[in-house]
């Protein structure tokens, strides 16, 4: 769920547009038609999409780092290959999403600069450190679990390139959550040290996972517009509840316990009741004060800066060879 709107304020309405065109556009979207890159669209729709898709892409790319932290220390060859393939997939998903955003008239370099300058946001979840191997299990199980919940409906989102990227992503991600849960399962059934590791990871990742669904609905001013535009299909609170209802029994099945004293099945509602999320923590992390936010941005900045001469070299080489080819003709 890297698509949560984290601006926390209402998006400014754009310049006046032809009401007839806007109405026709709204009607197409309401009719579940797909909008394609060259179609006319309201400026606010375009801007909201660029923000949401690029934020989603950034989250995939920054999200490579916490898990990447354990590739070289994976406990056996099978786990090493799985983890590397998974983190690689995330890079691919970032790439698909950047490409989808590029169809809206923004370049990947521009989006990258926005991320590195701190102007663009990415999912808060990746600002927490991965301390033990169990964190790799917890991320696959909880973080990917939460992501899938939001991404599956986005396969039918109104913007064609975004929807198609999501179809591909959902197909590829189907193994991610399962491998995470499998890791947790092995740990929970393992030695006492491993079980402790698993519970500790659940304790640390539970709240940040709930935060992935974004602020409560009454603090999410753009929800209504985004739902009307079919770029969001369920509200933050609905998805959060769904996540808790699905995840709690999964934890219990392997003898782990979600760290929330208020967690209790509510027969009348047919849902779990759960404690209030620490929203002060959430907003602090959104503003860039996550525990390892600086490290994450430092790593991305370093990769970008260190790679500059490589990207430049390939560009110069291509120009050189094209010129040589032309001269030879």
């Amino acid at each position: 769920m890297y698509t949560t709107d984290m601006t926390g304020k209402k998006t400014a309405q754009p310049v006046a547009e032809d009401p007839a065109r806007v109405a026709a556009f709204e009607a197409r979207v309401a009719n579940d038609e797909f909008i394609e890159p060259k179609d006319w669209m309201p400026e606010a729709y375009r801007r909201t999409l660029i923000r949401q898709i690029s934020q989603h892409a950034h989250s995939e790319i920054v999200g490579m780092l916490p898990e990447g932290n354990w590739i070289t220390r994976a406990p056996n060859l099978r786990r090493k290959a799985i983890l590397l393939a998974k983190v690689q997939d995330e890079g691919g998903h970032g790439l698909y999403l950047y490409a989808a955003a590029e169809t809206l008239g923004v370049s990947r370099d521009e989006m990258t600069e926005a991320l590195l300058s701190g102007k663009a946001k990415y999912s808060t979840i990746f600002n927490y450190p991965t301390l033990t191997w169990a964190d790799i299990g917890a991320i696959g199980w909880l973080v990917d679990g939460a992501a899938i919940m939001n991404q599956v409906p986005l396969q039918r989102t109104s913007y064609g390139p975004y929807a198609r990227a999501m179809v591909r992503i959902c197909k590829e991600e189907s193994f991610h959550q399962r491998q995470g849960y499998e890791i947790m399962m092995h740990l929970a059934q393992g030695t006492p040290e491993q079980k402790r590791m698993a519970q500790d990871a659940l304790d640390r990742w539970w709240q940040p996972s709930l935060m992935m669904f974004g602020p409560p609905d009454d603090k999410s001013p753009n929800t209504e517009q985004s739902m009307r535009w079919r770029i969001k299909r369920e509200t933050n609170d609905e998805l959060r509840q769904k996540f808790v209802d699905i995840t709690v029994p999964q934890a219990e099945a392997i003898g782990l316990k979600a760290p929330d004293p208020a967690l209790k099945w509510n027969e009348a509602r047919g849902h779990y009741d759960f404690g209030e999320v620490d929203w002060d923590e959430f907003w602090a992390v959104v503003k860039g004060d996550g525990p390892v936010a600086k490290e994450r941005m430092q790593a991305r900045r370093k990769a970008w800066d260190d790679g500059a001469w490589v990207r430049e070299a390939a560009r110069v080489h291509a120009v050189k060879r094209a010129a040589a080819k032309l001269a030879a003709e």
């Binding site: 790439l95 698909y96 490409a99 590029e102 990947r108 198609r164 990227a165 591909r168 990207r311 390939a314 560009r315 080489h317 291509a318 060879r321 094209a322």
Partner: peptide
Amino acid sequence: HVGSVHAADAKM
């Protein structure tokens, strides 16, 4: 059509 990539030249 499946998507796009960035590359400096056709081979890449």
